[in-house]
Protein backbone atom coordinates (compact mmCIF):
# COMPACT_ATOMS: atom_id res chain seq x y z
CA UNK A 1 0.00 0.00 0.00
CA UNK A 2 1.00 3.60 -0.56
CA UNK A 3 0.50 5.86 2.44
CA UNK A 4 -0.54 9.44 1.70
CA UNK A 5 -0.21 12.01 4.48
CA UNK A 6 -1.93 15.39 4.22
CA UNK A 7 -0.83 18.40 6.25
CA UNK A 8 -2.50 21.54 7.61
CA UNK A 9 -5.20 23.03 5.35
CA UNK A 10 -5.09 20.15 2.86
CA UNK A 11 -6.98 18.13 5.49
CA UNK A 12 -10.03 20.35 5.27
CA UNK A 13 -12.80 18.14 3.92
CA UNK A 14 -10.36 15.23 3.74
CA UNK A 15 -8.70 12.71 6.05
CA UNK A 16 -5.24 13.03 7.59
CA UNK A 17 -3.97 9.75 6.09
CA UNK A 18 -5.04 7.67 3.10
CA UNK A 19 -3.87 4.27 1.96
CA UNK A 20 -3.93 3.54 -1.76
CA UNK A 21 -3.32 0.39 -3.75
CA UNK A 22 -0.12 0.76 -5.82
CA UNK A 23 -1.99 -0.49 -8.88
CA UNK A 24 -4.51 2.35 -8.63
CA UNK A 25 -2.06 5.28 -8.98
CA UNK A 26 1.10 5.59 -11.07
CA UNK A 27 2.43 8.92 -9.77
CA UNK A 28 1.78 11.72 -7.29
CA UNK A 29 -0.42 13.59 -9.76
CA UNK A 30 -2.76 10.58 -9.80
CA UNK A 31 -2.90 10.68 -6.01
CA UNK A 32 -3.75 14.39 -6.06
CA UNK A 33 -6.43 13.75 -8.69
CA UNK A 34 -8.01 11.04 -6.54
CA UNK A 35 -8.06 13.41 -3.57
CA UNK A 36 -9.19 16.40 -5.69
CA UNK A 37 -6.10 18.44 -4.73
CA UNK A 38 -4.92 21.00 -7.27
CA UNK A 39 -1.19 21.32 -8.04
CA UNK A 40 -1.14 24.98 -7.05
CA UNK A 41 -2.43 24.10 -3.57
CA UNK A 42 0.69 22.04 -2.80
CA UNK A 43 3.88 23.71 -1.58
CA UNK A 44 5.98 20.74 -0.57
CA UNK A 45 5.58 17.29 -2.08
CA UNK A 46 7.63 14.52 -0.52
CA UNK A 47 8.10 10.86 -1.32
CA UNK A 48 9.79 9.07 1.56
CA UNK A 49 10.97 12.41 2.91
CA UNK A 50 12.48 13.87 -0.25
CA UNK A 51 11.03 16.59 -2.43
CA UNK A 52 9.68 15.35 -5.76
CA UNK A 53 7.52 16.51 -8.64
CA UNK A 54 3.89 15.48 -9.33
CA UNK A 55 5.07 13.39 -12.27
CA UNK A 56 7.31 11.27 -10.05
CA UNK A 57 6.27 7.61 -10.03
CA UNK A 58 5.14 5.97 -6.82
CA UNK A 59 5.44 2.37 -5.73
CA UNK A 60 4.29 0.03 -3.01
CA UNK A 61 5.22 1.10 0.55
CA UNK A 62 6.04 4.68 -0.48
CA UNK A 63 5.02 7.41 1.93
CA UNK A 64 3.76 10.51 0.11
CA UNK A 65 3.46 13.76 2.10
CA UNK A 66 1.66 16.82 0.77
CA UNK A 67 1.96 20.26 2.40
CA UNK A 68 -0.10 23.32 1.43
CA UNK A 69 1.34 26.56 0.08
CA UNK A 70 2.53 28.77 2.95
CA UNK A 71 3.72 32.19 1.91
CA UNK A 72 2.52 34.95 4.22
CA UNK A 73 4.65 37.08 6.44
Amino acid sequence: MIEVRLFAGLRQGRQKIYHMEPDSVKNVQDIMDVLNIQREEVNILLINGFHQKPETAVKDEDIVSLFPAVGGG
Binding site: G9, R39, E40, E41, N43, I44, H51, P68, A69, V70, G71, G72
Partner: peptide
Protein backbone atom coordinates in the same frame (compact mmCIF):
# COMPACT_ATOMS: atom_id res chain seq x y z
CA UNK B 1 12.35 28.15 -6.88
CA UNK B 2 11.85 24.60 -5.66
CA UNK B 3 9.43 25.66 -2.95
CA UNK B 4 7.40 28.08 -5.03
CA UNK B 5 6.93 26.86 -8.60
CA UNK B 6 5.34 29.34 -10.99
CA UNK B 7 1.86 27.92 -10.50
CA UNK B 8 1.89 28.39 -6.71
CA UNK B 9 -1.26 29.98 -5.33
CA UNK B 10 -1.42 31.05 -1.70
CA UNK B 11 -4.63 29.93 -0.07
CA UNK B 12 -5.31 30.85 3.56
CA UNK B 13 -4.18 34.45 4.10
CA UNK B 14 -5.13 34.54 7.77
CA UNK B 15 -2.36 34.71 10.39
Amino acid sequence: ELLYPEETVLGDKSV
